[in-house]
Design a protein around this nucleic acid. Sequence first.
RNA 1: GGUCCCAUCGUCUAGUGGCCUAGGACAUCACCCUCUCAAGGUGGAGGCACGGGUUCGAAUCCCGUUGGGACUGCCA
Length: 482
Amino acid sequence: MSGPRVRFAPSPTGYFHVGSARSALFNWFVARQDPEGVFILRVEDTDESRNREEWVEGIYSAMNWLGLTLDEGPFRQSDNAAAHDSAAQLLRRSGYLYYCDCTFAELETRKGPGATPGYDGFCRERGLERGPTTALRFRTPREGVTIVRDLIRGDVEFVNNLIDDFVVVKSSGAVLYALANVTDDRHDRITHVIRGEEHLANAPKQMMLWEALNAATGDEVALAFYAHLPLLVNEQRKKLSKRKDPVATESYRDQGYLPEAFVNYLALLGWSPRGDEEIVALSTLIEQFRLADVSHSPAFFDVKKLTHMNGEYLRALSLDEFIDRSAPWVAPWSSAWQPSDREPPWREDQFDQHLYGLVAHLVQERVATFAEIPSMVAFFFLDEPTLDEASFAKVIVNDPLGRDLLRGAVQRFERLASWDAASLHDATLALGEEMGLALRKSQAPIRCAVTGSLVGPPLFESLELLGREKTLRRLRVALERV
RNA sequence: GGUCCCAUCGUCUAGUGGCCUAGGACAUCACCCUCUCAAGGUGGAGGCACGGGUUCGAAUCCCGUUGGGACUGCCA
């Protein structure tokens, strides 16, 4: 007995949908938890309008980012067109398919307004021959039921008579998804079809096709088990929409989410590991995952929770790893891969890798994604800090104490025997105390003048790393601006 | 409209008849820590959609109601 053979079969749509990512992941889990399991990628590119090479590349690169390694493939459905055609012809010769030349308009007139959608079977017994406008329809059984044995939901029963004679081959001759998919699944000896719930209604049709193919070819391939994953929905509880929801996996990669955090979060959508811990190792995910434990109800893709988890993963990185993996966002010129639209605000010649290495630990615990780093450390590399005018006005322009603090800081910092965080801290504290101010108050104008903002990494460590010269210059510039 | 799926805190979930005065996580609130912001710590608020059964006992089983969703293409 060999292991499960599963496949992930996306159609190229321009980006990698997070729902697809989760389907791929759950398929991959099933393959990986069995030493003989096989995970296949099959790009379903039979629709000409969805067949751009760059889109297919996008699927490969997203899968690679997620670490979803393949055992077979990638395959292209379009490469099997000949097999699809012969399957269709075989089915037609065996009487499972019939030609139909009804147009949509004709169907409408026959059924009248407001009728139940679906084909009425008009051409079923007309014995039409192939013509320029004939499609091939499947002769759905008029009696009995088809039971989809869903590994997640249990048995789902469909009354055959309620399933209309669906089109299998277009009048153009192109074989449609239902048949192409089943032909390939049989060919690849797929044992588990794990996909989104939107496909549940397709399952009985595909089972009929699968069995028809078994009978017509004499090649008895065991029907795959089905497992329909709950949908991923937005706050409105609607299926994630490409137009209004942030569904592109690539955009999370570009924002600096860690693939391991992303995978961990995805695994929590519709499933959960044992115990109270949600942040768990990939090996645990693989080991514990069971299709039978997958939830039946839709899940909301919560970016806030994802972001929180990513922050935890980021903080768990060693400092060297953090520095290394943040390179695409802080020093893209030195990294093999660059996120799109995420240029740091400094130029290559302004950036100081050594300084960044000293600064990194200050930001590691303050960011949740890599893309948040540049704005937090820009003042180290830019000639002048990017001033937040509102803050500047608040603590310096409109506050006379701010100017006094700045002047006092210049005087004391100039004379400091040792330029280190502790000395800077003490000097600022003493200066504030002279004026009856707590450190939290006295540090504010200095922070604003030097870093441009009232929030940021610890001030005194920052000043130490920035150096006496630059610090004093920025304090004086601020004073002149008032 | 028809077919199908679903229903535990705002969100993701644990819970498979007694361990549940329902546990965890995100978000939220308060406090602590603190040079800002975070991080971290402590604590709080917050849920079994409703109605009937079955049972000694129901979040858990059954039926109904209500609510949500998917599908309903000569797309995948």
